[in-house]
Design a protein around this nucleic acid. Sequence first.
DNA 1: CACGATCACTTGACAGCGTTAAGTGAACCT
DNA 2: AGGTTCACTTAACGCTGTCAAGTGATCGTG
Lengths: 217, 217
Amino acid sequence: MTTSAIRTASLARRERQKAETRQAILDAARELFVSDGVEATTMRAIAAKIGYTPTAIYHHFRDKDALIVELCMADFSSLGQAMYKIGRIEDPVERLRRMGLAYTDFALDNPSQYRFMFMTSLKHPMLDANGKVVTSPDEDAYGFLLQTVTEGIEKGVYRPELSDAPELAQMVWGGIHGIISLWFTHCDHPHIVFRDPRETVRTMCDAMIRGSLRNSI
Amino acid sequence: MTTSAIRTASLARRERQKAETRQAILDAARELFVSDGVEATTMRAIAAKIGYTPTAIYHHFRDKDALIVELCMADFSSLGQAMYKIGRIEDPVERLRRMGLAYTDFALDNPSQYRFMFMTSLKHPMLDANGKVVTSPDEDAYGFLLQTVTEGIEKGVYRPELSDAPELAQMVWGGIHGIISLWFTHCDHPHIVFRDPRETVRTMCDAMIRGSLRNSI
DNA sequence: CACGATCACTTGACAGCGTTAAGTGAACCT
DNA sequence: AGGTTCACTTAACGCTGTCAAGTGATCGTG
């Protein structure tokens, strides 16, 4: 083994070890965020879970928010992939409906992630080292939604007054998001009997789509 | 002046003074909550604003949450009154539409209040001294909504499969809430161009109602 | 081999938070 | 005049996120 080979090998090991503790921090943080909530999870608790001191975390992440954002990015990616799978469906209206239901499943299956993905405004949104916003187009769920409603508009399936793709997209997204987030924050309300959010979303999608089509059925 | 008259007079003055500082705390808290947000507002800041020490607040409110809830109650009342005014409209469908728009106006005109009314889960919901939930029926906005959709169902204006009033109510409420809350948390998002939420809500109400009516127009 | 540098990590602290036990002093009733 | 009440203060507690300074193993180089 040459000296340079040893050098690179040891360097690689150092970097691998650093990456490992970084990942350990992420794993511990994710677990605590999910079980206790983001706000209630302390840097000290995350550190204790992996046997480090709290300050060790700051060698891997600028602050608590950066840690949250990092986990957020992974979640956006997996949500985007769930949307991507549905992209195959030919009919843009049926695809829109299915995307809505898949989005709802994602939210209800990952409530804690959903909370900090869509129910909080993160201070520094996901920026990479160059300061550019990180979103690979393959994973951009909103992009998929926008494209799906655009296809519908171009095909002329929607009523003529519904020609603004962003408005249509935000109507659908917002509508579903509202049912989900209201459920998350208020399902225990003593005076309101909440219906199963999946059912309500389904009903909403049907009503909203039916009311948006040119040929009302 | 009799002694008993003096007694009651001084007692009344004491109580009035206590009520005044209590109100001063509420006013200061409201102002800071609105300008800085609930989370960012500290008990110390509220106290400083009215020239007291932080601990003084605890003689009037059990904790910070109780302070928030107290303000919340006033806001629920004024939202309820806004809904009540619309109650006169005869046609339950048009009334529903107008309630949606009024709700949206309330939310966008009082963003900070809306945030902690509907976008956070309060630990101890509004309970009075007897432990009963405080909501005078005249001010229960959700009750008005429920009644309005119920009237529509009874009149037979909605499609037969939409016969569950709570589901219908939560569909409408959730849908509007989603557009509003998404706007609040994400309107500054660098990659998403948000449409005016009032417009989007209007479009949604139209589409949702059209898609829910028995006689699709 | 020895020496200085690197760097992941620790120590010990800081300021700020919500909250509380104990104390103070003016107004009150007897 | 003396005792009680009570709105309010003082001083602290334990908690948080965060950081400056230090440590020690590992490393490249004379």
